[in-house]
Amino acid sequence: MDPVVLVTGFLAAAVRVTTPLLFAATGETLSERSGVINLGIEGTMLAGALAAALGASEWGPWGGLIAALVAGMVTAGVFALLAIGARADQIITGTAITLAAIGLTGTVYRRAFGAAGAGLSIPTFPPLRIPGLASIPVLGPALFEQPFPTYLALAGLPVVWWVLFRTRLGLALRATGEAGAMARAIGVRTRLMRAGATVAGGGFAGLGGATLVLAQVGTFTERMTAGRGYLAIAIVVLGRWHPLGVALAAFVFGLATAMQFLFQALGTRVPYQLFLMLPYLLTLLALAGAVGRVRAPGDLGR
């Protein structure tokens, strides 16, 4: 096979699989910067994915995207109510939220589409070619011929960076995460700050789930997020709680996951399950290398 075609396809696939991770990790960055570790992000993505499927079959892909945004924010809102409002343990609350999301999405999905789930055709986002930029050899088609959600994820990054590091709101948010008691002492409404960051983060996670449905798979299946939310949490650690680092870490994951397409194209007879394991193993390795040299927000998880 022509190596240029191969590399282009590989990069395009990497960008495609990066997108949902990028959304989720950006959202988790926001909430962790405010001191909240949201393990429910896995369930939030799942809720977003189902909402996207239902919304898109009713109102088209744009409706699906908005439905997913709302579903993500609502799910994260429930988490915020329990973990921030009632001060329940964040780790266990997050696990419970994910468990509830698996149950709810499974039930609603079967109720809506029947046990087989057959005949579910969802309008999806077609690849959007950006004139000019898409003509750049190799990189062009990989980066600038993607479905709309990819551009949205890329646009979200600088916005989150700007809010976190260039606004008073972001300063208050980071102060809340680093030293909640001190932030409260200077008049920051820390619980509101945390709830806000968590809900906004949930919106991002919902969009991540929507991307899976509307720009990749084209349908909803039960437990389709398959741990991407948890990967996103690891990516935030690897990206050192900074939007740009997080983007880089997410893309490395995209590359690792896209390896399976590359090897399939090359006709290698390596069991595909090895490639399914790869991102998780890589995360563990990277965490071992990264932790110790990075510092989490001071009040994370309190």
């Binding site: 329990l82 329940a88 343990d89 266990i92 939220i97 149950g103 709810l104 499974g106 039960e222």
Partner: peptide, 17 residues
């Protein structure tokens, strides 16, 4: 659908917590 019991489990976890 039997997955509905996951919701029950989640509610139990949260009430106890």
């Amino acid at each position: 659908p039997s997955v509905a019991v996951y919701v029950v489990e989640a509610v139990i976890i949260m009430v106890v917590l």
